[in-house]
Simulated assay, not measured.
Amino acid sequence: MRKHRAKVRENASYRPGPGAVRPGCSCAPSHTEWSAMPTDPRSLMYLRFARPSLSRTVALALTCITLVACGGVDTGASSSSELPVAQADPTLNAKLPDKIREAGVITVALDVAYPPMEYFDTDGKTMIGLDLDFGRAVAQVLGVEIEFTNLAFPSILTSLQGNRFDMTITAITDTPERRDVVTFVDYLSTSGNVLVAKGNPKGIADFTTLCGRPVGVQAGTTQLADAERRQAACAAAGKPPITLSTFQTNDAANLALSSGRVDAVYSQSIVNTYVMAQAPTTYEVVGEELNKTPIGIAIMKDKTRLIEAVQGAVQKLMDDGIYAKILAKWHLESRAIPTATINGGQ
């Protein structure tokens, strides 16, 4: 059995911005600060929850209003060495496709622009986040190495179809439309919610009060499609439609919120929880969580042996308690699911 290690490749054309400074500080960024990089807009074919790639360039434009307090906040963005090493399971290793088992490595595509799920550490090169820790643990159970490649999100499913990668672990939501192409091994639950300025100066109570208001949302995301569907409720109530302003990145939408160009931002609940933890005096969430869906590891439907092996590995991590430790490290215990379902249990 090969000794497990995680190899990381990086798309050289897809790089993070310069370092940010902490609000109210002239100091250099600390390890606790989370970074990301701008991403291309998502096509509707590859709908995904809005990714708040809070780029450090945007953070500077906000005059040091970033998502970290001056004293720093422990985001769990340290080495995965603090997590227990999962024990390899020879039975699950034997279920792997021969090509993967013989090579001793599983290849994973991910879009490193979505803290706390995956993003670049302050060195601008090291990939960190829940998905990387989780992917390493899955590989440990399977008894293989893992190789992560950073890829723009709209290219990921196409790359899976072209057999460039074995799977993707990149906080991709498990939707019926995507199941036509891939099979999901679910490992988290998520939803969308509405982010407003701290103190809610516009008096937004829930999604229905957004009729006639400017709302920011990342292009090509599940939130955009959901917001467009909710326009019917405004019409039924005799109210003007929501003015949807789309942005290439969620950080741009948040910048529009902080500058008053939009009254709210509709984005992913996992990210908004993280945003509020880092900037409790800047943002808050209003209303209920909407459009609840699972997040899963996506694998081409015809790779049945790989799907079975990965599902077994995820379930073993859940049973052994390592799954809970990974979620606790990233403060996402509330997003846990009890079993490694396939396609949302459908």
Rank of each mutant, 00 (worst) to 15 (best):
M1E: 09
H4V: 10
K7F: 13
R9C: 04
E10Q: 12
N11Q: 10
R15E: 14
P16E: 07
P18S: 07
V21L: 08
S26M: 12
C27L: 12
C27K: 13
E33M: 15
S35I: 02
P41H: 02
S43F: 02
S43P: 07
L44S: 14
M45F: 05
F49C: 01
P52W: 07
L54M: 13
S55K: 08
A59R: 13
A59G: 14
L60W: 11
V68D: 15
V68L: 07
C70V: 05
G72Y: 03
D74H: 08
D74S: 09
G76H: 07
A77E: 03
S80M: 07
S80H: 13
A88M: 14
D89G: 04
D89F: 02
P90C: 09
P90L: 08
N93H: 15
P97M: 02
K99I: 12
I100L: 03
V105W: 03
L110D: 14
D111C: 15
V112T: 14
V112F: 01
Y114H: 13
P115T: 12
E118F: 02
L130D: 00
L132R: 15
G135A: 14
V141L: 03
V144N: 13
S155T: 05
T158P: 00
T158L: 13
L160V: 11
Q161I: 02
G162H: 13
F165I: 06
F165M: 12
M167H: 11
T170W: 05
A171G: 09
D174V: 12
D174H: 02
T175R: 14
E177H: 04
T183A: 03
T183R: 06
L188Q: 15
S189Q: 14
T190H: 04
A197W: 01
K198T: 00
G203L: 01
A205C: 00
F207G: 00
T209M: 01
P214N: 06
P214D: 06
P214R: 15
G216C: 05
Q218L: 04
G220A: 07
T221I: 01
T221W: 04
Q223M: 10
Q223T: 02
A227Y: 03
A227R: 02
Q231K: 14
Q231P: 10
Q231G: 05
C234T: 07
A235E: 15
A236W: 00
K239Y: 01
P241H: 04
I242S: 03
I242N: 05
I242A: 01
L244E: 04
T246H: 02
F247G: 04
N250I: 02
D251T: 12
D251F: 04
N254G: 00
L255E: 12
S258T: 15
G260P: 08
Y266P: 03
I270R: 08
I270G: 13
V271C: 03
A279R: 05
P280H: 12
P280L: 04
T281E: 09
N291W: 03
G296W: 01
I297F: 02
I297V: 15
A298C: 05
M300K: 11
T304F: 00
R305T: 05
L306K: 01
I307V: 10
V310K: 04
V310N: 06
V310A: 06
G312K: 11
A313Q: 11
Q315W: 04
Q315R: 08
M318N: 07
D319E: 10
G321I: 05
E333W: 00
S334F: 09
S334L: 05
T339D: 10
T341S: 15
G344R: 07
